[in-house]
Structures are given as C-alpha cells and as structure tokens.
Design a protein around this nucleic acid. Structure first.
Lengths: 347, 347
DNA sequence: CTGTTAGCGCTTTCAG
DNA sequence: CTGAAAGCGCTAACAG
C-alpha cells in the first residue's frame, strides 16, 4: 500500500527506476530544484508516493556535511527548569522542520566536552549549550553555531541568552531588607557555578548598600561554606543542604530571612522550613516553583522563566543557522519578583 | 597538540597513512578486532592519538546499518514526569556508551508517527515510546526493538513498562472511602488516553465495591464531561479544569473528596482548592508532586515513580538490543499510597 | 533540462 | 595477519 513492502528500504535509485529517470533527477525533485521538466517531476512524484520513498537522513548528512538536527546540551533533562527550556527549543525547532537531540552533562566538564564532540561529529546544524565548564575556547572552534543559555561563556564573543543573575539576587535581598530583615542567609548552590557567584554578588551588594556587613568569619571553615557566616554553598541535591539549613536556624544568632539562589535549593530548603514549622522565617527563591502559591505562606520568588529563555535561544540559533544573525549578542531576559507572602514576612 | 589542527577532519585514511598501513587495518584496531599484529596495533594507536582521530558516527552508521543511539519519544520533555523518565533512560544508556535522542509528540498521533519514522531512518538501535496513538501495528513493523512506557500498546506482544493504573486509582479511592467519603470526584484527564480510562475504571470499581452508585446522569452532557456527575475529563493543562473544579465544589450536592488522576491535574486542582481555602475537601493524587509535604494539609498521593519506570525501560531495551531478552514482557511497577494528610481528611 | 561520474568516511566482502 | 575493491544512499561537480 504505502511502500513499506516487507520492510525493504526504498532507495533513490528504486524511485528512479520506477519513474524511468536517473537518481539525480529524483534527487532534484526531492530537494525542490526547479530545473526539472514538469512532466518528469510529476512522474517522479508519483513514483515517490507509490513506493513510499523517504530520503535517508544519514546518507544525506554524510554527503552534505550538515544535518537538519540541532543539539541541546543542558545540566539534566530531569531538572524541571532545563526540561522546560528544552521543551520550548523543541517546539521552535519542530515548527521549522528541525529535529532536536537533547543530552545532559550532569554537570561534568569532561562529559560536556564529549557530548559536544559527539554532536558536532553528527554534523548538527547548531548547538544550544548550558555550559558547565568555565573555559569555552574549544566551543568557539566547534564549526557550528552555538547559543549559550543560562550561563555565559567566558570568552564573550558568542550568542547567549541569560538573565541578570546579580540583579535578580539583589532585588530579592533588597525586598527582604525592605521588610526589615538584616540577617539574611544564602542557601546555597555549588560555588563552582558561574551563576552562583553572580547571585552571591547580588546578595552581597544588596547587603552592602543597606550597610549590613557580612557577618564576621570564623577562621577555620568547615567545607561547604564560604567566608560569610550566613552563606552556605553546597550541592543542593544533597542532604547536606538540609543539615546546613537546620544548623543555621538553630545557631546562636540565626537568620530571620533566607534567600535561596535556585529552584533546586528551594525544593530542599522549603520542606525543612515547613517541617520545623518556621513560618516566621522570610523566604525568597530564585526561580519559580510549582504549587508556590498553594503553600502557606505563598512562596515569593524571582521568576526565572524557562520558556522565554528556551524560545529566545532557539530563535537565535535558527537565525544563525540561516545566516541571518548579524553579530553575536547577549540577550538578557528580564526578571521580576513575584510576591506571594513568604518574602513579605516581617523581621 | 591533540589533532584539532585547523579544524580539519581527520579520517581513517589519514591515520592509515601516518601509521603506514591500510584503512582497513586501522578500522580493525578501532573496533577491537584481535587479528592485528601487536606491533602494527601499537603504531596505529600512536597515530590515532597523535592525530586525535575520532571515527565518524554518520559514516559508520550508514555502512553498518545501525547506530549506537536510542530514541525516546514521550508526550513532552517539559512534563516533569517524562523529563524524569527520560533522564533515567539517558543515565542508563550513557553508562553503556549509547547516545539518546529525545523528542516530544505533544500528544499528536501524526507527529508520533513522523518522529518514529524519522528515528528509524536514523538507524536508532532501539526506541522507548510513550504511545499516544491507540493503534500500534506500525510500531511492531519498525525493524528495531521498541519498549513502551507508561501506556500499553494495543497489540500486547511488545515489551512495556507500566503501572497498574486501575489498581492505583482503586487504592486511592478506597483510601478516601475508608475515611468516610462517599461523594468523590474524578478531576480529570483527557478521555482519549488509555490511562485515563484505566484510572477511571479503578475509580468506579472502588465506588462499586463500596456500594456507591455513580450519581445519576443528566441526559444532555456538556462537552468535557463523562456520564457520571462527579467525573470531569478534559485537558488538564487548560483552565477548563479550574472552572469545572469550582463548579463542582459550588454545586448543590458537592463532593467531599477529590481524586486527581495525574500530576498534571493535581497541579491545576490543588491551587484552586487552596485559593478557595477548602482544606475540608479530601484529596488524593495519582503521581507525586514536588513540595507535596510542604503544603498543608500534605498532599496524599499514589507514588508513580518516573525514575524506576525510566530505568526499567532502559534496561529492558538494552537487553533487547543485545539480543538478550527472551520474550516480550510487561513489567508492572508497583504503586504505593503515600499518606500525607490531604487524603485523610474525614468526610 | 537531464544524466554520468565521483566520493562523503566507513566497513564488509573476499583475496592474499 | 593484512589489504584492495566495492558499496551503504545520497548529492556536488561536471558534462551533455
């Protein structure tokens, strides 16, 4: 009926034979080359339909040196933020007939490099990367356009779609300060991440401009802490963050407010807060959460919209692939604070 | 230094030339063929390293007819459940050196077919599919192993990893009945989905065994409703579900308990409940939620573990690809009820 | 407008 | 143990 005769693969030459012409002419028809006689074109199209021919993307890519697929490399597809980013990228790509290949680095630099190499070898037409490694000279040598998301490349001559992390954090902490808080904790991403540093900068800037000095630093630091007494940086997916949160809240001079620099952190810290029944502790998180408004108090967040970021990155990459983008640029997606209650708890 | 000399692609023949041997011998070394003289092997390996050679996966797949990539086709990567499933699949695949290609159907049958065709054309070694179409004969003809997840294929001669949807729903509704509820609403997936039907069956079974007849059905049904007065089925991503929830709660003889048959529904219904301040309405959801224990009352759920499902599906597919799996089987992942408060609200 | 030839980079024959 | 030839399915280059 439709060509799947016994599972046998239909090739260009089969179509050519059926249409009584050459492979090249069929190729022309397939690729919309206008220089084919209408009559011939008709015969070919009929044969294509009759045999159910579908071009082999592998052979085509090998010959053309490029593929109609783009690669998306993020921390983890299982992370709802990146899952959503990837989903949007897919939507945009799909609407232009481009396939998407998604892969996770799991925040491993070596793995990141391997994935990129692998994708380039597959002749992807372009890449969208949430970089984990700090050094990206190898990326610019990649021979296909790359758009960075979420985190900036160190060498700033590439396209990227980011947010103003420092500003977002500053806004969050200012908000807490405006509600009377002076002891505000930062709980607490991996210090290696670019964004951690920026959000920490914003946190400190807000404190500084309010004349709040970072608390004195004891000399011998346990691992997982930075200088500041109220700053914790550790893997937010580990229970260490729970422990640190409890320790801080139980300490002699505890924080009255918490700034959580990422959704992953919030998902750790909020349950601790609720388990302890500490509704008196103010909370602002970086990144929105499902059910944020159904918790009481509602969770105040800096909205960090994955769908916008994904869409912009995808559109940018499409333009680049089409050769349309004029020069590398950094798109900064605006952030806004969404007050829901937890950030407005008074000191 | 490491072969990326001027971005030029290093081919097998370049290595052969450097090692003063033939392309085929280099190919043998690359593929671990033992029938190469140790001395030759050494020379080749040195040349590979010196030139930074990496085999071209495209050319290799074209020639071999198979690729070391598997395809994952789910409703949407942006859906946290499937994102998590995909993440686990990726982990397992990766540990065996297999790449993963993820794509979303967006619950479109035609699109599902296109994606599958596309992936098969790319010679994927296997597929993991959360089927949306109800008829899957075309899938079994796909010429590569397929493992179904979440929803069963209609022709049951394939591998699949599912949960006992009816049983999970029955357990949930029994739990509510045990707490004294007799008017229990079902709110409310798309009726087209296989799983909706099964979960609805379980819901009805639990009611039936408790001697609770489905409420009388008015003759003229507005769209989005099934027969039963307390059953709503509609797209859970639309605001229609909010409206239906409010309507039911405001009706003359309102439900005292709600069974939400999926996480997507829960994320719609719970905010409505909280907005209305209806802490008196009992709630059990199918599928766990982030922050479920931080809401008050804590959200009672049937845990529907995406990581287990993903891992099992991936392992099953790997076995199949390796030719190890004996015969098609349906793996049923056990479900358990996690009481957290909302399901224990008395009638 | 159409066809032939060559070759993308690799691996499978099949001979040495 | 090694290599030459052929070809996976397609398209670029160059004729006609």
């Amino acid at each position: 009926m439709n060509g799947r005769d016994g599972g046998r693969r239909v090739r260009l030459r089969d179509v050519a034979a059926a249409a009584e012409t050459s492979a090249k002419t069929v190729s022309r028809v397939i690729n919309g080359d206008p220089r084919v006689a209408p009559e011939t074109r008709g015969r070919v199209q009929r044969a294509v339909l009759a045999l159910g021919y579908q071009p082999d993307p592998l052979a085509r890519s090998l010959r053309r040196g490029t593929d109609d697929t783009i690669g998306v490399v993020v921390d983890s597809v299982a992370d709802p933020f990146f899952a959503s980013v990837a989903g949007q990228i897919e939507r945009v790509a799909l609407s232009r007939g481009i396939s998407v290949m998604i892969a996770s680095t799991n925040r491993d630099q070596r793995h990141e490099r391997e994935l990129l190499t692998r994708m380039v070898q597959r002749r992807v037409a372009g890449l969208i990367l949430a970089p984990i490694s700090t050094e990206h000279s190898h990326v610019s040598a990649l021979s296909c356009p790359v758009v960075f998301v979420d985190r900036r490349p160190s060498g700033a001559d590439s396209d990227s779609v980011v947010v103003d992390d420092a500003d977002g954090a500053r806004t969050a902490v200012r908000h807490l300060i405006a509600h009377g808080h002076r002891r505000i904790a930062f709980l607490g991403l991996e210090p290696e991440l670019d964004t951690t540093r920026l959000r920490l900068d914003g946190y400190r800037a807000a404190l500084a401009e309010a004349g709040i000095a970072p608390a004195g630093k004891p000399p011998g630091e346990p691992s997982g802490k930075l200088d500041d007494e109220l700053v914790v940086t550790c893997d937010p997916d580990s229970e260490q963050l729970d422990a640190e949160t409890i320790r801080l809240l139980d300490s002699a001079d505890p924080p009255t407010a918490i700034f959580s620099p990422s959704t992953r952190c919030s998902l750790r810290v909020l349950p601790v807060l609720h388990r302890l029944g500490r509704r008196d502790v103010a909370f602002v998180g970086f990144g929105d959460l499902p059910l944020a408004e159904s918790i009481s108090p509602g969770v105040t967040v800096i909205d960090h919209p994955p769908d916008v970021i994904g869409r912009l990155a995808a559109e940018r990459l499409m333009d680049r692939i089409a050769g349309k983008a004029p020069e590398p640029a950094t798109l900064t997606v605006p952030l806004r604070l969404v007050p829901r209650g937890s950030g407005e708890v008074p000191a």
